[in-house]
Write a protein that binds this DNA or RNA. Structure first.
Lengths: 225, 225
DNA sequence: ATTTTTTTTTAGATTTGTCTAAATATAATT
DNA sequence: AATTATATTTAGACAAATCTAAAAAAAAAT
């Protein structure tokens, strides 16, 4: 089974938009893929005949088990290449997404398995996202949006959901990366901005939009025993 | 300047067929690219409007300086990826060509420059072919076909001109690789086969076809001082 | 110098992935 | 429930890269 880069991109986009197993709308897909709704409809019909997704006109779309499997392999490739770019070629984590978008379509599975081994079987990519294994299983990591983090609670950044250069640039500016330990000092009701403190650094303020795209883990055992 | 994988393949193929700066025929290109002569004609017209080659109907084709530059960058990428696959991912040198055919079309030049550095700026790929530098200059290596190697002259294999799996498989069988030291014991006039000896190994015979595709360097200073 | 063969080009289709504009279905609002 | 707005699909076109079959040019052979 080999699919064109375009088809692979559709499957990946649907997978990401699905998340909770809900159906994905034509428009949502068009927005995600930067294309027209008409093009999406065309492609959905083709992917349906290949049994990669369930699709009823006007009723949205959902991946089949086969479709999910393909999507997970693309995601695996994407994240392993990102890891390679950052760890071996010393790219900044904000530059790798675009390049990995190309590399993820290289077909050889032997290549990707060897790469995985060469990299020491990493479990997460540089953005903190888990890397599916060769069978396509991907551990679910408990993650909370910074918006939902209780005030004053120490937490560690584990992933960022938006990987635009613009956002990654902003994170760099604030010295936030995967693994960064931080806490929300307070919330400003007026504009929903958050004051953040990182140990040994001056406090600073971030927008609601940024907070919504930052995911953290934190200790859920009570602070006071 | 970004070109489609298909266009890049045409430029690369013309570059390889040109060698001595002669014109390349439509049919030769079609054969090389496993496509029809009609398709070649179509593509040549497109590449001509992009000033990547000189082309007059029925008169064959030749790359312009621009076209050569693009071709050399593709070759650079191809050979660096091959080196990576063999040296870092432990692929056999006979398996890497196909995969590199895909990888060579990844566009980022920053990626390829970092890869080059990561690999320690190798000068030749696993098949012994020189790797063009970032500016596109490629050292000319003095190489002689095994057919032209004087009898009893010790020489070292530096490259193979045919990279089909079939040929590389045969080479493996004979324990011949880049750097292998060997000599031609004698030539059999009847069928043009050659008897080869590799130090510390039993002698064996190879076909004229194989010999034609094996290139060696040897010391040209007189054996007896 | 014809004729024949080979090579190359043109003509006309096809596939994939895309587009815009128009039509139609669904959802939201009054 | 009828109307308006939004979402989605259909219709028709286009560019890239390819194909086969036919025509034309060039080369080879008589």
């Amino acid at each position: 089974m080999k699919y064109s880069p375009s088809k692979e991109n559709y499957l990946k986009a649907i997978f990401h938009l699905q998340q909770d197993d809900s159906v994905v709308s034509t428009n949502a897909l068009a927005r995600q893929l930067n294309t027209s709704a008409a093009s999406v409809t065309d492609m959905l019909k083709k992917l349906k005949t290949q049994k990669l997704l369930q699709y009823q006109p006007y009723r949205g779309v959902r991946l089949t088990a086969d479709g999910k499997k393909v999507a997970l392999q693309i995601i695996r490739k994407h994240r392993l290449w990102e890891y390679f770019l950052v760890e071996k070629l010393e790219f900044g984590w904000e530059e790798v997404h675009e390049i990995a978008e190309e590399l993820e379509h290289i077909s050889s599975t032997k290549l990707i398995d060897r790469l995985d081994h060469f990299l020491g079987n990493p479990r997460t990519d540089p953005h903190g996202d888990p890397i599916p294994d060769a069978q396509g299983s991907m551990p679910l990591v408990q993650q909370t949006s910074l918006l939902d983090l209780p005030v004053k609670k120490q937490a560690a950044v584990i992933s960022v959901s938006n990987q635009s250069t613009a956002m990654l640039d902003l994170l760099k500016h604030h010295h936030i990366g995967i693994g960064t330990k931080l806490a929300v000092n307070r919330r400003f009701e007026f504009d929903q901005t958050l004051e953040i403190s990182i140990p040994h650094r001056p406090v600073f303020t971030i927008s609601e939009l940024l907070a919504a795209n930052l995911f953290v883990t934190y200790d859920t055992t009570p602070t006071t025993a």
